[in-house]
Design a protein around this nucleic acid. Structure first.
Lengths: 204, 204, 204, 204
DNA sequence: TACTAAACGAGACGGTACGTCGCGTCTTGGG
DNA sequence: CCCAAGACGCGACGTACCGTCTCGTTTAGTA
């Protein structure tokens, strides 16, 4: 079961029998992704995914050990990654970041419940933690690079706690989105950027 | 279905037929609350709640239109509210706040998946939004008062954006908890408080 | 609880409190009778009867101890009794009888399942036996009189077993109706009459 | 849904997917049959049948569309068929028949309500008619053979209406059983046989 | 070329929970 | 004491998914 093995073990030499269909892999992920945006994660059933993918349920369970594992993989695979832009300054970088994310959120339908649901799933099933970690890392990585670059540039103090910085910035955005289903935008976005940068600025 | 009507519509005075049992109300909420902490939200069934409360399922469904609506109400009713302490300074207030919350989270078992799950539910069922709003308001209110008091004291600028302040502070805490299942504590907690206060301090 | 007490006990002298509404009695019976012909006995619910009669369920249960008891009473009350005609001969009497019944059956809709259902109910609830006996007696009485008159006339032997005669005649009609939902008619009716009369004729 | 297809449509040969378990079929029918004799048809629940058969409810509903359809099949499958004995004369045959049936009825518990209940069910659900017809045919077939043999022997007239004969004989027995829960026996049985044979004897 | 072993689609399987319905009883306020 | 309204505990209903398990059928690599 995948869920995180991108480096994939190329170990076992002797492969006998019919190999797994790569098309099935893709069809399943695509079907899952499509359906999750159509009906939300609550209205999602394995039978539906299977029939939409033209695949049997057994074929799915041969690859993923649970519904949640599949969904996490589907999301991690389908996620349009954020390609960080180096604008030359933290301020510019953050502005660009928040703008891009905001736009992405406004266009992506039915996804508000995704993360919550997956966290809920991971909570009750430890096997999903790695996939959830991946998910988290993929989302925070660009911000981490962004802040670390700023430190290297000397824009932020050397002892900047990047983790907390990310959590403040991303956390604020998530909190607003989760509880009010709205998105940081315009003046608010600008103010959040200002606040965060001021927070990180050299103390006294 | 309740879910938020504490102010309750005093509209129609003419109540006919046998009135709803207040004991049933309470028994159900208590049972739901107990079970949710015992088995988590995923392992929760209406049959279990009903039997634990000594009540029939029909009696539950007469009051709440779905499992999630019930749980939201149960949480809102059973929530030990945070009683904000006025230490005389924002710094002290925030330190006290984060300490109290951290302790509460460490002791409360099985609750990491609660909020996510409920948000997920609210997403797919608009009828739950009010209850979710209540939930959010109850949690953010103490922080709001805390920050507003600081503004009145003159510790923070008059144009402080309290909403964003809350989102940064609470968002950071939530983000860490949700994705890493750990809690702001010790030096980290101190640094978060410092960062947030510096963010809000008069610009320039 | 009635179910059979048409002679009604005029016993108890001291009546206290509000007397039972005679209108309710009738409304209930009428509603039950109407509904039973509309939706059949299977689709019948006490709530429906109550609401159709403009009466509360408690009012019904104050009078009858169960759904089946009510239905039996409703049927016994609503049954258009067969008024036996004395044509002067058994042959004529039986011909008239079978003709009348056949016509009645052809016109009465949704009633095929009534008797079976009631027997089923009576089987599992001994309290209904008297009402079922009434039901049976009301249906068999005309035939009994018919045969006894024939014996008095000398058309049939003095030792004629009237009970068996009735069972053969009525049983044949019921059997056909229950298992094939058809009705004795025309030549078949004539032949049945012939057979039965021949059966009862003096042996040897 | 079976219900009657013993000749089974050999139509589509292409069977895909896991085939239905024959053991489940049998376990379900057996469980239904056992339970029906234990608790009667009224006290019968699908959950009980399922658990007794070690089967899930879904498995039952995959095969039969309703409780009644299942019961009909169970009865038709489990029915100890009457093995007609050729005693050499109608008189002997009928005596043997009535004796055997009477004994069977006296021993079979809780079955008085079966036929009525099933007829009631069939009335409101046309899909059950075939199964009910089977039921009826299985019960009447021995009698039909018995009478036809008598005609071939010359004991009964060539124009004997066998259907009516059956209805008179079986109808009388059913009628007594249904309305009085008693069984033809001894002198009564003898008289019924006599009456029926006399009814069928050459007229005039 | 045949053999073998795994993957495939279809769909049945045992479970668990769902939300609904009807029963017969109980509890209001009001005749 | 009756009544209409309607809530109540109970127990069964039939459905929906879960994740697993056969089936008969491809589809490779190996012999």
């Amino acid at each position: 079961m995948p869920a995180t093995d991108l480096p994939a073990a190329p170990a076992q030499p002797a492969k006998r029998g019919r190999p797994r269909s790569a098309e099935a892999d893709e069809a399943i992920l695509t079907a899952a992704l499509t359906l999750v945006t159509e009906v939300g994660i609550g209205g999602l059933s394995m039978d539906d995914i299977a029939s939409r993918a033209g695949v049997s349920k057994a074929t799915i369970y041969r690859r993923w050990e649970s519904k949640e594992a599949l969904i996490l993989d589907a999301l991690n695979s389908g996620l349009g990654r954020y390609e960080p832009v180096d604008t030359g300054s933290v301020l510019g970088d953050l502005r660009t970041y928040i703008g891009t994310i905001a736009e992405k959120l406004r266009n992506g339908a039915k996804t508000r419940d995704l993360i919550p649901h997956l966290i809920a799933a991971a909570t009750s099933n430890p096997a999903l933690e790695p996939a959830l970690d991946d998910y988290s890392r993929i989302r925070t990585q660009p911000l981490r690079e962004l802040f670390e670059r700023a430190v290297r540039r000397g824009e932020l103090p050397a002892d900047t706690d990047v983790t907390i910085a990310i959590e403040m910035f991303l956390g604020a955005m998530s909190h607003r989105r989760l509880f009010s289903d709205s998105v940081y935008d315009g003046a608010d976005a600008e103010r959040l950027v200002t606040y965060v940068l001021r927070a990180l600025s050299a103390g006294e």
